[in-house]
Amino acid sequence: MQINRFSRGMSDYQLKMAFIMPTMILLILMNIFPLLWSLFLSFYRYKVSIPTVPPKYIGLRNYSDLFTDPAIWGYFRTTAYFVLLAVTAQFFIGFGLALLLNREFPAKGLVTTLLLLPMMLSPVVVGLFWRFILLSDNAGLLNYLLSPILNLPILRSIFDPPIEWTTNPKIAMLAVVIVDTWMWSPFMMLIALAGLSAIPKYLYEAADVDRASAWFKFRWITLPLVSPLLLIALLFRTMDAFKMFDIVYVLTYRGGPGNATETVSMNLYKLAFENYNTGKACAMAYILLIIIVALSNIYVKYLNRVKGET
């Protein structure tokens, strides 16, 4: 038979390679090569928009320029501020929702599905409709809904409505945090819910027999058993939040007002695709990659420790 002859002609090793090679080639072409190529370019002065000027080797100059530019540190501060606020808010809201959903009630499935909807939407779509919700004038839906409260004499004496959500540099980042939290708290909720539903019921029953308080059960049963999963969720969210780009691009018009919401990724985009400073952008991307890898390592080490304890 044809097939037998064909398979007889191949050794086990060749067969293995035949299966692995397509994936390997794809991985090398799509991941490894761009990674190495961008590393190579990060040591060159090169603008992709001007191909007539060949890349010029400048050693670590792109890196030193970036590290000595005070504006870059400003973007890192903005990013850190965003990550801290957004991930903290998402953690508490997501975990809180998971605790509420971890019980039986009518239409639980429907409520859970509805709560998960925001994270299934495209970030650009989310950014666009929140742009209209958070318009800084009275036409903004949120300002309109809040107007009865904001127009109370006691509040009017403190500040002048409407709230300038995306145009006041002091508030704009809060607007980005609100949108990101709305979108990604369900992710935290989902992971926490998976962890909560995996906790054996008999532990709570035993605690009930011992007349343990609700706080005691939460502190000594729920939290230790769900924490490895919560840490994984935190790890994902931190890495993702650190790369925040899309919502900022759409909601606050590329990091505005000024550079009040310009995250590192936004700046990286501007360097690469608006300024066409390809070499510098590659160096910046590597700095970002190293930071994310370092952050992830801290999480993973902590996760292993927590796992060991539990």
Binding site: T167, P169, G255, G256, P257, G258, N259, A260
Partner: peptide, 10 residues
């Protein structure tokens, strides 16, 4: 970036 920062008070 700078002009936007100036008009919004940054």
């Amino acid at each position: 970036t700078n002009w936007s920062a100036a008009v919004t008070g940054q």
